[in-house]
């Protein structure tokens, strides 16, 4: 498990490097703050689906980061 986790973290780091990780100024974060950028844009709507998937699959969970971070606050 640990090697796989490290592999994913390595891939993340590689993606970060490949995409440049540009410095983004506060006034450039309008798109990042858009609701449509969130992993869960509508909690009520997507909560229903998430509940179904958690019940129906033996391998639920593990989605970790909430996917809303944009450094916009």
């Amino acid at each position: 498990m640990l090697p796989r986790t490290l592999l994913l973290l390595g891939l993340a780091a590689a993606a970060c490097g490949a995409l440049g990780c540009a410095t983004v100024q506060p006034w450039e974060r309008g798109v990042l703050a858009d609701r449509r950028m969130r992993a869960v844009a509508s909690p009520d709507c997507e909560g229903a689906r998430a509940h179904v998937l958690a019940v129906r699959e033996g391998a639920a969970g593990g989605l970790g980061a909430t996917g809303v971070a944009c450094g916009c606050n």
């Binding site: 970060c16 540009a22 593990g62 971070a69």
Partner: peptide, 22 residues
């Protein structure tokens, strides 16, 4: 136990890495 990290890659792109141990 949850560990997550999100990174702003650019003005229009963000990356999330997350791990949970239960």
């Amino acid at each position: 136990l949850l560990l997550g990290y999100s990174h702003v890659l650019g003005p229009r792109t963000a990356l999330d890495v997350g791990s949970t141990l239960t």
